[in-house]
Nucleic acid binder design. Structure first.
Lengths: 128, 128
DNA sequence: AATCTGTTATATATGTACTATAACAAATAG
DNA sequence: CTATTTGTTATAGTACATATATAACAGATT
């Protein structure tokens, strides 16, 4: 579980951490029950402040991806079962909204419907 | 050309303006040669500062969506011809990257490949 | 009982967003 | 030509998010 943080990115560090952990869950690199490093050790490894990691963990906790277990720290949850359906629904609504926005931009650039679908399909195949 | 600004949104106002104008170009509501309202009048209509609109226009200009013509103000460009191919390429690379991110999140939530493609297809149909 | 966990509190620095006035050069309408 | 309108730039101030830095806390585990 190696995280790649880009300090010069416009995307906040805590967001990069959060997104990369979600990606690791998607790829199966992280599975339900897996233990995440402590906020202090991960912060040390990444060279960032403890609170930056803590914020990423708090977001993951609020989203239902991980659960906190006292001294055992942050543990990956079984998202399909533990992410509240209301939150999962919110996520899917947001994803749908962003898909529409991306399609709109693509069209404004002169792209066709088929080109967009082809692009989406090729990207989907890198994940599933 | 009515813009709907949400002051309580996390998305910056100038970004909302920029995105909605790009969407209007995509839908054909705005076409090459159409004149945008002046930064002052649009700011007045939306109830925001002139510089907020000016920043949105500057972004659209840098992206190649509009051209500035002295007193004629901001005019919609023919994106397919005037957006520099290098910029268009950057846009498409970014769009591909965001598609992969969305697919990854969808999978982390327990969604399947087919469900994601169905969602994407339905959203694409609202644009094209 | 000691230790490690996430959590919370306080403080500071930085960058972005937004507002507010003001003035400028360039293009255009009259 | 002249006055007006355009986007642009400059300066200044407020507000908020991000990230850092110390410090202390309660809870669970070893």
């Amino acid at each position: 579980m190696l995280l790649d943080i880009d300090l010069s990115s416009q995307e906040p560090i805590y967001r990069q951490i959060r997104t990369q952990i979600v990606s690791a869950i998607a790829t199966g690199e992280l599975s339900a029950g897996d233990q995440l490093p402590s906020v202090r050790s991960l912060a040390g490894d990444l060279g960032v402040n403890m609170h930056t990691v803590n914020k990423a963990y708090a977001v993951l906790r609020d989203e239902g991806y991980v659960v906190m277990r006292g001294r055992s720290g942050a543990v990956i949850a079984d998202a399909a079962r533990t992410v509240p359906s209301s939150k999962a629904q919110e996520h899917k609504v947001r994803i749908a909204s962003e898909l529409a926005r991306l399609a709109s931009e693509f069209k404004a650039l002169g792209g066709t419907r088929q080109e967009f679908i082809d692009l989406a399909s090729s990207q989907v195949d890198t994940v599933f």
